[in-house]
Design a protein around this nucleic acid. Sequence first.
RNA 1: GGGCUCGUAGCGCAGUUGGUAGCGCAGGAGACUCUUAAUCUUUUGGUCGUGGGUUCGAGUCCCACCGGGCCCA
Length: 495
Amino acid sequence: MEATNNSTISSIRENRIQKLNDLTDKGINPYPYSYDKNISAAELQKKYKELAAGEETTDTYNVAGRVMAIRNTGMFIDLMDPSGKIQIFSHKENLEPDKMAIIKMLDVGDIVGFSGDVRRTPRGELSIKAKDVKLLSKSLLPLPEKFHGLTDVEIRYRQRYVDMIMNPEVRDTFRKRSLIIQKIREYLCAQGFLEVETPMLHVQAGGASARPFETYHNTLDMHMVLRIAPELHLKRLLVGGVSEKLFEMNRNFRNEGIDTRHNPEFTMIELYQAYVDYNDMMVLLENLVSSVAQDVLGTMVIEYQGQKINLTPPWDRKTMLGAIKEFTGIDFNEYLTVEEAAKQAEKLGIEVEENDSWGKILDKIFEERVEPKLVQPVHILDYPRDISPLAKVHRDNPRLTERFETRINGWEISNAFSELTDPIDQRNRFEAQAREKAMGDEEACGIDEDFICALEHGMPPAGGMGIGIDRLVMLLTNSPSIRDVIAFPTMRPRA
RNA sequence: GGGCUCGUAGCGCAGUUGGUAGCGCAGGAGACUCUUAAUCUUUUGGUCGUGGGUUCGAGUCCCACCGGGCCCA
């Protein structure tokens, strides 16, 4: 990126490069190899919380971080590290002239190490009384304005590092994201789940309904796609018997639109447990999410954009047909043909397309009339068979499957099934999908012969579940856009 | 894909009825030296997203395009 194609920036940059040269002439490496930092800003603040204003100690520490403000021509420097801020007090009484000269050359944005005694200034600011200074990295480009910071969302996304330097809450969000993922992993591993990896490069997209990114392998001379879901490979592992409980937490790629809840690459966890069904998945999800919230936020009652959401188990359960009846008054058990269902949908003002199946129509009604009304966590149970090609038929109703989607704040947070293990039925479902694809549904999946072959070797009954990590992080960090929880969201290159 | 909306100095923002652009911070020079958005003096910096059009004259009005954001499908 050409960041210097203007006069303000280039004059600042030239000025700083001159400083680089001056330092080098003095035998100082402006980009040295290491520094013996032995305390963080936050640790210092905590340790000397009781130190009174005007008090001095003889405790010496080495601190390091980024210069965020310089006052009184270098006498006071705000040094920021990931933990917080510590002030540097530099006075010629305590510093050799050559060290003082280095401090005079510092710019906001430089990364610097200081060594000195802890004191609290008469005005009450905990400080390091610098006795030594070491430039650790010279910055050449200026930071945004110190008071208003960086607010331009486009620059925040394109130059996330600047966003993170200027906005502490952004750093905090990404730390929380990391912690959430760590806690999920710990929770599942403690339950005996084995973390596995399956291919990102697929010959054929499967395991979800979505358009894939397409690519090409040169040596194999083969068209390939980036995976839209790991499901079919994880089930192969279940057939293989590596573990009766396994999960993969990683990226999926879907070649679809971008909005506040969708990024083309996103993080999902998929987990499978042998010998259980979707009922067990509901309990697992409730316990997992609520305990992660407790661990990360210290509470199971979160606030999202002004709305209180209670994650304390157990969560509400509604069947899909029951929820539709609740919010529209229409009982689709009485309208079992596509024609009847379409007529009811049209009465509700919902557009039905020519090839829409019974299940698809119900799904549309659900999305429009029910989903926006759901705020508190709720499992929506028993999805129609024709839109659930990987779920086992419902034991009590052959039109439905044992599938649930969990909604929190109306968003799909999880999608889980009593997994379809019958290879004959699976083939039939795939063939139905293939027919829809042939009729123009670009999201329908094709027939994965090797997957069916795996099922024909016998897959244990299992519950499986996918959980959208980004949306979970949005909820737990009160972030309004998925781009606030993905460090480098997909962007069109700047012209 | 549709609607609304934004783009002016590195950043945060003004810019009147159409008359060739200002403020704050940052940067430079100097002063001060226990400050914390330090202060004071002084000063540099602009292809007003891009390209057309209307006009004597466009940051401003019109059109197209580029790049964002929000909402909808």
